[in-house]
Write a protein that binds this DNA or RNA. Structure first.
Lengths: 340, 340
DNA sequence: GATTTTTTGATTTACGTACATCAAAATTGG
DNA sequence: CCAATTTTGATGTACGTAAATCAAAAAATC
């Protein structure tokens, strides 16, 4: 049986009230007494029963999710997963609020973050726009002891406690190797479609992609990046234009807005043998994978990211450890054979 | 605020004791009264606070894991993950016991299963050997209301509540497509190394593999399956022998015992361009992936499988729903770029 | 040594549920 | 209609922790 507060009280030779004062860092305990209690806690290996404590406190976990107001399938999916989490709120004692901020707008994000220090949520998850002022705002909140996790796109160099998202450099590298291996001995040019080079996840994917291409597939030349702003219409126009180049034998779409890419491919490349790798499994990319318009899809599971972010924030709020392996968000690789 | 037992008592116009009798299916409640209470429960949307209930009951979840006594890295890994789970027992209120049974031995497995109905665990996870008598034993336990999940290898057609493992047909199909695409236009023969055709997961992988090969890569011929019994020594001998055949351009290792495969490849195929796909990420396969002996690894995350099995068994024991998407075990595809 | 201040103990209530007991009410059987 | 039985209510204790109150003891101050 695991030890209870009574056991530590007995072991430390103090009363229950004193143990409580130590555990909940209430004042009025002499230093030596506090030490005695802490020793007993360590020696008995006491860990507070979080369920019982939450019951007694009537505790809930007010969490805030900050998302960019982007109109693409991935963000819609992420939103849907958060709504699912809201449905589980009562069982999980969470109280989740989402805030939408304009995409690619550091100032707006900072403004929202500033506002949060008054509201006192017990945890914050944000899809970070990568900018110094955002980093500074996040660091400030961390210093005010708010648990913070970055979601989908990381904020390297900041003090955020955790990143719930995939390793985007690895994703880009993986895309490059898949494309290179699928193309085999063929020589030619590769078109790259991104959302924006202003967001870290896209930059990192490109970085990984170009690195492996340069190291291992010198016969494949990467064309200048097309920035589709994660918008299907823009993507369509850019890709349709680019496909005028007959030397293109492969495409890597590392952002969102794949509806436009797929349409362009179906219009302009029916007669050509193109190898295409795209990110994010959506209804559109799934259909394209099945009909062979796309050869592989790299995906991050938004549901896992949301659930992981919640678990981590709750654990941090309680000062508990997380199961690292469980919280690692994996890069999913889908061929038409292993679709869920 | 979510409703409590007091709220249903008030709403149904009965006492707390009666609500309790209904909730815990104790006798001594007239049919009409029971209906009143159940209506109130439904209308208020009451759900029992599992944390509080467990606290009151002092409940623990005695779980049994039944594993084959196989000496390969995957099973060692699975065991290690179960030990990790045991370390978390006190926090998760579980009480986990593992039982090892001889591998590929339906009778031994059945004997253990029979013994369990006396022991009354609140959940059973087993790596199933695929045989009618095992199915029958499992079905009997399910009828006795034991929650049961199959682990790693499924028991199709049985009444088990859940399967915590990958879709092995999809895994085989994926391996075939990867191999086919990596080989490109080359023609030649493919060696397949399996553990045993007596276990369902291996049969299914082979089935998926041959299906896609036949449909889509007619230039690649599959050689007769080598059965290595998941034993590195046997695998080494079989593969070394097979590589005498100069027509082999690809290898698919769908079972365990990859140490032997890798050794054979390093000895016999240094001068050849072989494309190799193997299952299960272990220290050995990881090293082989990095040094280009293996081209891709298909993996199931043993940690996820164990944690998922535990979550599902607990949920079933409490009669609660599981988050389906969370419990789906995904097929991991590792290239050297996205290793964890 | 008396007084103030700080520290500690003892005790109670609460959280939401489980479970047991005993008495009271309602229903059933004869 | 009375007795036997079943059903229901009222109440208390427990689980492990939080949080509050008030009294008692110890330490610090003068």
């Amino acid at each position: 049986m695991r030890p209870t507060v009574h056991d530590i009280a007995a072991a430390a030779g103090v009363s229950l009230a004193t143990v409580d004062r130590v555990l909940n860092q209430r004042p009025g305990v002499r230093h030596v007494t506090r030490e005695k209690v802490e020793t007993a806690i360590r020696e008995l290996g006491y860990v507070r029963d979080v369920a019982a404590a939450n019951l007694a406190k009537g505790r809930t976990y007010p969490l805030v999710f900050i998302l960019p107001a982007s109109d693409n399938s991935f963000m819609h999916g992420l939103n849907a997963e958060i709504r699912q989490a809201v449905l589980r709120s009562s069982a999980e004692r969470t109280d989740i609020r989402t805030i939408e901020v304009p995409a690619f707008d550091p100032a707006a994000l900072v403004a929202v973050l500033e506002g949060l220090s008054r509201e006192k949520p017990c945890g914050i998850a944000l899809v970070a726009t990568d900018a110094p002022e955002v980093r500074a705002a996040v660091d400030r909140l961390v210093r005010e002891r708010f648990p913070i996790v970055s979601l989908v796109s990381d904020l390297t160099g900041s003090l955020r406690h955790h990143y719930a998202g995939v390793d985007n450099i690895a994703a880009g590298r993986t895309a490059a190797r898949l494309l290179g291996r699928f193309l085999g001995p063929r020589k030619g040019e590769i078109a790259v479609l991104a959302g924006s080079m202003l967001v870290r996840d896209h930059r990192e994917r490109l970085e990984g992609f170009t690195a492996v291409m340069a190291e291992e597939f010198p016969d494949l030349a990467i064309l200048p990046v097309l920035e589709g702003r994660d918008d299907p219409e823009v993507a369509h126009r850019l890709v349709a234009d680019a496909l005028g180049n007959a030397g293109i034998i492969g495409v890597y779409s590392l952002g969102a807005g794949n509806r436009g890419l797929i349409r362009a491919l179906k219009e302009k490349a029916v007669d050509r043998v193109l190898t295409v790798i795209a990110h994010e499994l959506t209804a559109h990319t799934r259909a394209a994978l099945i009909d062979n318009t796309i050869d592989a899809i790299l995906n991050q599971d938004a549901g896992h990211e949301v659930r992981s972010a919640i678990r981590v924030l709750k654990a941090k709020a309680d000062g508990l450890a997380v199961i690292e392996a469980q919280e690692r968000i994996r890069l999913d690789i889908f061929l038409k054979d292993n679709l869920p």
